[in-house]
Simulated scan of single mutants.
Amino acid sequence: MTESGSTSGELVTVGRITAVYGVRGWVKVHSYTEPMDNILQFHGWWLRGEDGWEPLQIDGGRRHGKGLIVHIKDVDDRDLAARYCQRDIAISREQMPALAEGEYYWHQLEGLRVVSHFEGGEHDFGKVVRLMETGANDVMVVRGGKDGRERLIPYLPGEYITDIDLEAGVITVDWDPEF
C-alpha cells in the first residue's frame, strides 16, 4: 500500500478490471457488488499491482450491455488501458454500508473455522475458503479439518447455519460429517 497507513487488511475486493473497451482508455469491469453498478458509488478505488495495492482514479463509469465500463483518469489510449486489465479492484472497508444484525459480508465469513455438533460430537470441518452463488442459495466452500476434505455447505442461516461468532472466528453448522 502506498497511501496514509492503509494496509491490505483494511481493503475489500469489490471487482476486477477484465478487458479494454474501445480505443479511448475505457475498460470493462466485473463487479462483485449487488447490484453490480453499486461499485460505481465507491470512491478511492485501489488496484492490485505487482508490489501491492496502488490508488486508482476513475472519472467515468456506466452500465454497458450486461456489464460495466469505466474510464481511468488520464488514460486515453487502448494500449495504456490494457496495463490495468486482469487486476483486482478494492475499496477501504469503511466504505462498506452497515448491515442489519445477523447479516454478513462474504469477506467477514472467509477464513472462519466451521464446526458441527452433529449427534453430540464436535467435528471440525476446516475453514471457509470462499463463498459462491448457485442461484438457489449461497454456498460455503469449506476445506481442511481432520480429514482434509472439501465440503460445500449451503449458506442457509436457521437451517444449516446455526451460529456465527465473528469474535471467536467460528461458524457452527448442523451438518453430517460424513456428507
Rank of each mutant, 00 (worst) to 15 (best):
G120D: 08
D79C: 03
L47N: 04
G44C: 13
G121E: 14
V75P: 06
C85K: 07
G102Y: 06
D77I: 05
H43T: 13
P55Y: 14
E94N: 10
G49N: 11
Q41E: 11
G67K: 14
F42N: 00
Q57K: 12
K127H: 08
A98C: 00
R63E: 15
I69V: 15
P97L: 02
W45Q: 14
E122A: 00
D138P: 13
G61L: 08
V114Y: 01
I72F: 01
L109A: 12
E119W: 12
Y105H: 08
R83V: 05
E50R: 15
P55G: 13
D77W: 02
E54D: 13
R78H: 11
G67V: 04
W53H: 10
G126V: 00
Q57P: 02
Y105T: 01
P97Q: 01
E94K: 07
G102M: 07
R113N: 12
E133I: 00
W53Q: 11
A82L: 10
N38H: 14
L56P: 10
Y105I: 03
I39P: 14
D79S: 07
D59L: 05
G135E: 10
E133A: 09
G44R: 10
V75H: 03
K127C: 05
D77G: 08
H123Q: 09
A98D: 06
Q86K: 14
